[in-house]
Nucleic acid binder design. Structure first.
Lengths: 255, 255
DNA sequence: CACTATTTGTCCGTATGTATG
DNA sequence: TCATACATACGGACAAATAGT
């Protein structure tokens, strides 16, 4: 039985500016981290992999050595290469539907650090969503949220000036939505856009992932009781430590 | 003023088994595709970039040539390197909250092709979510959804056997949810999990993106009126062609 | 018009990394 | 392990096009 799909075989050769051994490493790592190759399972021998992928044995060996260095497999001469990584379904889940629960739940079980806070001129995408002139003053905050000392979310927020109560110090001690409430902002609506993007350099280092890792990206616009957008939040989430969860029930039909 | 953040400077050196010139290419491409470097803007000269990143000029040149080959910039000797890519906010948006609207909207404006259809034994993650024994028979379908001939979604579905009406042919001509209804399945609940993942070889070729591109990933479990899960759907979406959108309104408080 | 500074294009030689048999 | 071939990265040097003085 073949261990590699035709597409995987092609992908390993496709004139990519990346060493062959590392391409093979990536394909195998993905199989292990996704749970396709489970804990305890043996990989095919170096020779078999080399034949199936059409590369030399030395190249495969290097890829497997890299896997071992990443502590995903165990290799022993005469025995083979065995998966040691234990696949487990993801971790933290948050509801996406309700506006405020997430605040209380997340606030208690996770911690936030403020990387930067400053009054800046609104960049284009913020100005247009907040319906203010380009360059109008807004408070920009960059924060990282962690669960048990493991960072999983990176936030960049732009907020209309709310007064002195909204600053780096108060952000460190209070959840943002709580601050909004204390400062007299009555939130009524939220617009959310969900997509994915590759980790940029800053985000990659803040979340402790390799450059260009796939991240869940959420844009959230808070709108107050006067239908004025007051806050633009851009969030990036590590998919292995966080995911959104929703449960929907359809209305019963004519009974 | 510096064109590169400290993090970007570090990211370009981090002992990655990827050619330097390609790392630089990726950083710059990201800046352009995200709209940080706008249409018409000039990049710093090769020498300036080389100094800021601490690499040789030839290496920078290669990265810029790669950008030009990707049709993101225009290069002219004596003039410099100018961005030609026009940044525009994303395209197709779908509501995530309701169960059925998306069907009618998406069904009309997009087309689906069936890549494969077969009765298979349930793999572990499907068996556990559908609450059936490992290896129990299910219908596995792989499909690609396109908008104006541009593929944007890749689906892998596992469905409990519903009878002869559910096959490759009927899938090609009817939306899945319509088939469910025709076959007497009354859907009442949906469980959705949203996350992100890197494009595998198969998915990358089907969606026409490079390997390891960041994709939006959606797991959707359909549950019928008897609270039995009947279908497990795994969807991967190109973030540049599709994103989810939600609008929430908070209940008015004591007035 | 010439002159100059800037910027990209091209070439060389060398050292190191990658991939094969 | 070794020899071979090719890609990557460096620093340097010079040519050619552009824009401004």
């Amino acid at each position: 039985m073949d261990a590699f799909s035709p597409a995987e075989r092609l992908a390993v050769h496709g004139a990519q500016p990346m060493p062959l051994y590392h391409q093979i490493f990536q394909v195998l790592r993905q199989k292990i981290e996704r749970g396709e190759l489970r804990h305890g399972e043996f990989l095919p021998s170096e020779i078999v992999i080399a034949e199936q992928l059409g590369v030399s044995r030395v190249t495969v060996k290097r890829a497997l050595d890299e896997l071992e260095a990443s502590e995903l497999v165990d290799r022993k001469r005469g025995r083979g290469t065995q998966v040691t990584f234990r696949y487990e379904p993801k971790m933290l889940r948050a509801p996406l539907t309700s506006m405020l629960e997430s605040l209380s739940v997340m606030g208690r079980e996770t911690s936030v650090s403020v990387l930067s806070f400053a009054r800046v001129g609104a960049p284009a995408h913020v100005a247009s969503t907040l319906k203010i002139p380009l360059g109008a003053p807004v408070d920009r905050a960059v924060r990282v949220r962690s669960n048990a000392a493991l960072p999983f979310a990176y936030y960049v927020s732009h907020t209309l000036p709310l007064g002195d109560g909204f600053n780096a110090k108060s952000l460190k001690s209070h959840p943002r939505l709580e601050l909004f409430q204390m400062l007299g902002v009555r939130l009524r609506e939220v617009d959310q856009i969900i997509t994915a993007s590759a980790a940029s350099a800053e985000i990659a280092s803040a979340l402790d992932v390799p450059l260009s890792t796939a991240l869940l990206q959420l844009t959230r616009i808070y709108i107050d009781a006067n239908h004025c957008p007051v806050d633009h939040l851009l969030g990036f989430y590590r998919p292995d430590r966080f995911q959104y969860h929703m449960h929907l029930t359809a209305p019963e039909r004519r009974r």
